[in-house]
Amino acid sequence: MSRYIMSRVLQAVLVLVGATFVIFVITFALPGDPVQALAGERAADPAFAEAIRARYHLDEPLLQQYVRFLAGALHGDLGQTYSGQDVAQMLGERIWVSAQLAAFALAFQIVIGVGAGVLSALRRNGVADTGVRIFTLAGLSIPFFVTAFVLQLVVGVKFGWLPVAGTEDGFLSYIMPGFVLGSLSTAYVARLTRGQLAESLREDYVRMATAKGLTRVRVVAHHALRNSLIPVVTFLGLEVGALLSGAVITESIFNIPGMGQAMARAVYLGERTTVVGVVTVFVFVYVVANLLVDLLYAVLDPRIRYA
């Protein structure tokens, strides 16, 4: 077990270093001269330009800059923006906002997705199943930003049940954006659960469990569903990436001051340090989530043992 964990952790570190390097190289090639941008319309004073370049180590070769960045990141230092703001500190304030949003989204995915999947797998081809299938198809085909606009209009403006945008209302203001962000994958979760559970229900161990007199609820919940959830958990782990991507748009639409909004703004302004910082955090979250998923396998499926 410990050897397996060690090799997985090493692999995760490799992915983290590689992915940040790719983003670092790409942003390094971003057009426009940051020093000139600071100077505005006039040509930058050579002495000033040199000082800035030295301060941000822009005069060093790419690889050296990257190593410097990695060394800093290890100590929790993601550098400064060109306007002198500390990136790690700024992201530290925003990450909790994004985490709350992601938690809401994940909760919607698990509760609605798994619930709908179980419902339709147990009543295959019944009314509930058909309804769930129509809803999942609609959820898959309607782009989630359109869902966002429509919800804002109907629930936010017309009925005024939930705040339209912002985070001033605390808990309430996360419901709508959380649902929108979660709707991205709820339909997939429902379909996956339905397919997997329908398959498990035909397995011998389910027939065995029924034969030995267990209640239907216990058979489904304890024997069939537990085994069906492995692909669902894998999917949710991989989906963390999509969740973070989706946060960029959701936070922009709902004006939520999280990491995604910082990212959208930084990309727009060509603010390299922030872009690299946000992607570093995102990749880190993704890698850790997938590591946890791999370790969860053993918990969910007793047949899997890591030697």
Binding site: A19, A29, G241, A242, V287
Partner: peptide, 19 residues
């Protein structure tokens, strides 16, 4: 493959597009 999979598609693509 894993390295590129770890970079969220939308983020990577939008950075490239600004580039």
């Amino acid at each position: 493959t894993e390295i590129f999979l770890a970079i969220p598609l939308l983020l990577g693509a939008s950075v490239l597009l600004t580039l």
